[in-house]
Nucleic acid binder design. Structure first.
Lengths: 138, 138
DNA sequence: TGTAATGTCTCTAGTGACTAGAGGTTCAAG
DNA sequence: CTTGAACCTCTAGTCACTAGAGACATTACA
């Protein structure tokens, strides 16, 4: 059994975040010492590692809730789990696509001005002011 | 002179968002009718278009504030403006990079399970539980 | 056993960029 | 002059935390 600080160190999740996850129902309420401090064991460590990993991959708290719910019922079909992962993947792909467009536009805008002139003639500012100066939709 | 609703329609920025921008100091306080309603002119329209465009490109409110500050001083060097745009570009590139890593990992995880089995044996859940099943750092 | 340092507790409030809703007022059309 | 849409301010909620206050618990060492 170890303290919340120890759990934090091992999972690299900050202490207040652990308490937050508990409040959100992602982590079961921890056992307490006589002095009301939380104590964790291997199970708690594994669950938090799961959460941490899923958050790193961009899953929302809500999605993680669902995944944990599924984990707790090993007899169910895992279709829902793959669905969640797939839709997360789609979201990531959509974000990448959008960011690529932004990258092109920003790169074009940045290149248009070397910063050596006055704001009066700055291509960056002009581009932002006038959408017509853009290459494509965004 | 036109109303906030009209401005919203022309710029495709929602009415409460316009009021929020005013509160944040991005937009100057609008003139008011005798009945206390906001009225805008061409200048207001142009400034809001600028903001909208910059937000679309992912600039933060703070960055936009700085850009507007620069816009208001046409006699200054535009170095700061290009700096802001460049750092925005760098941020976008960093995000893309990270998302690409996530994409690969998620795609690998998703492919590992067709959703036809039980959660007990689900590769998606196993991958999330155990970081060691991952291909690379993320 | 005493004490000091560090860790932990709960609670509230703040972040960014809005969005939603309540309850009231003003405007424009007919 | 009435009706109904648009407008006003204010508060609170979103997401996933983060920061800080003030009090209590635990641990290490003398």
């Amino acid at each position: 059994m170890f303290s919340i600080g120890e759990l934090a160190k091992r999972t690299k999740v900050k202490v207040p975040t652990i308490r937050y996850y508990e409040e959100m129902g992602l982590l079961a309420e921890a056992e307490r010492t006589s002095g009301n401090q939380r104590r964790y064991d291997k199970v708690g460590l594994e669950r938090l590692s799961f959460i941490r990993h899923a958050r790193d991959l961009g899953f929302s708290i809500e999605a993680i809730s669902s995944l944990i719910e599924l984990q707790d019922h090993p007899d169910r079909s895992c279709e829902a789990a793959t669905d969640i992962a797939t839709s997360q993947l789609e979201e990531v792909r959509a974000k990448i696509k959008r960011l690529r467009t932004l990258e092109k536009e920003l790169s074009r805008i940045s290149k248009g001005c070397d910063g050596g002139g006055l704001t009066e003639d700055c291509y960056v500012l002009a581009s932002l002011a006038d959408h017509n100066l853009c290459d494509r939709e965004h």
